[in-house]
Design a protein around this nucleic acid. Sequence first.
DNA 1: TCCGATGGTTTTGGATCCAAGACAAGCGGA
DNA 2: TCCGCTTGTCTTGGATCCAAAACCATCGGA
Lengths: 244, 244
Amino acid sequence: MTDAGTKADDIALALEEAIVTGEIPPGSVLRQEHLSEQFQVSRTPVREALRRLAALGLVSFEPNRGVRVRMLARDELREAFLVRAELESLATEIATPKMSSADLAALEDAERAFSDATRELVEMSHAGRQDLQLAREWLHANHAFHDVIYAAADVPLIERMAKAARRTFLVKPVWATGADLDELYRKNDRQHRAIREAITARSPQGARVLAREHVLSSGRLLEAILDKVASQTREPASSLSYTQ
Amino acid sequence: MTDAGTKADDIALALEEAIVTGEIPPGSVLRQEHLSEQFQVSRTPVREALRRLAALGLVSFEPNRGVRVRMLARDELREAFLVRAELESLATEIATPKMSSADLAALEDAERAFSDATRELVEMSHAGRQDLQLAREWLHANHAFHDVIYAAADVPLIERMAKAARRTFLVKPVWATGADLDELYRKNDRQHRAIREAITARSPQGARVLAREHVLSSGRLLEAILDKVASQTREPASSLSYTQ
DNA sequence: TCCGATGGTTTTGGATCCAAGACAAGCGGA
DNA sequence: TCCGCTTGTCTTGGATCCAAAACCATCGGA
């Protein structure tokens, strides 16, 4: 809609956002006609958009039955963080010797913006209010920090794949649990600082392990939160492990 | 065609194969009408298939101008191997403690099949003959070996992403150079054996580093080959490096 | 009462049709 | 002669139309 290009692309983008933020809950079936009237277009571009989302793994096609927003299993969430841990750490390592002073300044800005978002969110949380929009902005600020690193690393393919893994982090389902996310927020903030300092110190290996641990610990925290919320209906722990 | 499901899926699969093997050379523009009569269908499923390929990164859409088979730059090839190195090593590490004796047997079979394919190919090569079909089978045998590992690891997301990276290895362009690929063939063979032995010995870390080195060395060899072939028209070496 | 067959309804997958954007050649004015 | 406009053709993007597969409820028989 806002973006130029074909309608199929616009719709794909819009749906992607809606799915990732949880606006369209996992497990939903997407009716082509419904979407076509929602976006004021015919079914043709809708179907092309759905094909794209299917290729990205966000929805699954069931031939002659419709498309369904993929319900990501616990194991897949864990996998997504494992993948991100590998790819982000790789990108960070590559970026470290390539960062110009302008890049470093941008990184500092992104870190600051993220800190601000974090602070705002924590305050809001302590005030008892939960604001989904604020959580989204926090997530975007979080991504923006890493995007500076990707831009400097100049590794489009790695970036594309890492972002694909990133998409599996559904905001709303987690957010909707109402769990206490302070630790997640603050830890992310601290880790960003540490990563930036390692990069500034031109330590590719240091930045690498920090980036890796950053992603893995986020994953662990997120899972712990999900555990706590749904502790009554848990299946036995999976054999996949974060700890190497 | 052979596969069940929708035509769009069949076409996407067929085109993917054709692109990856180089049957359709990089840089080609794909005319929808041409494809539709080639596959004996209308343009509709063709377009959906193209959307999928675009999402996979195999082709690029240029709005109102057509789709073009992506010309993968040297850096992207290198990136693809870096990604595969991380993901395959991760999957191998995860798989190692999970491999049942049946899995190990399957792995041994796959190794043997790959050895056979390698031997056949080397003999053919020494006889001065170059057989593209044989090279494809070799590649498939190669993939089959790793697929056993993925199956045991049971990490669908990692598998999917690693395979996406795998697709960027274009057979024909490399093959068509007529370069001496013996070293590549043999080294792969040796490394598969080493990886299997590490898995059998239940050494996740050992298997991991071997898998990583396996992929990276393949990448290095491939690049060296491309270098040798096109040594007259080379640009200065990229700043991306395989060696950590 | 329960199970399977049968018909209508819904929704998808695919074909065809139409409009709009891009390329190319020819025309006209400076 | 050269540059810009125009017009015609080609190709894509999107809309509409049609057939086939899947769902759903009802009905009939055991």
